[in-house]
Amino acid sequence: MMSINILLRNITRFIALVLIQVFIFNNIYLTGFGVIPVIYILYIILLPFETPKWLVMILAFLIGFSIDIFSDTLGLNAAASVLIAFIRPLILNKLSPRDGYEIGSFPRVYYQGVNWFVKYASSLVLIHQLTYYMLESFSFESVLIIFFKIVIASIVSIILIIISQYIIFRK
């Protein structure tokens, strides 16, 4: 019963995050260079600890690809999301408390504390944005602009993701 509940919750979260990202945040340009905050990776961040690693990667690919379809960036978000899904277990290991994560707890502020969550979420967001903008430009003529985009987009995304922990994903 519990697992069906989690499954349903994850499916609705998938759809909701794709719609929110594509139709709301894709239209919010933060600067004159058109930096867009990424919110949909909350999906990968919030997947339960016990999710099989291969499933995390496939789900990441699916959500990245869905975002790509709607925003005409075929492959870009998929590539960046698969990478953070691959790296996620390593980061979780690194940040793990001495006796492992408590059974029945989730990767959220409520269970793990702000400190832990900020470290965890921001490393994933940074890696995601780094791959996204590097892949998009494929050249180093404007390193400064790319750097600027990565920094602004990451900071704003991290802030929004942390705020979401206090408004929507409280428990």
């Binding site: 291969w54 492959g75 998929a78 892949l135």
Partner: peptide, 21 residues
């Protein structure tokens, strides 16, 4: 190595889409 292999396959599919669009 199923995890690494899956990772490589998914990344190749994505990057192929980016480059050879």
């Amino acid at each position: 190595f199923h995890l690494v292999l899956l990772f490589i396959v998914l990344e190749l599919i994505s990057i192929r889409m980016v480059i050879f669009e």
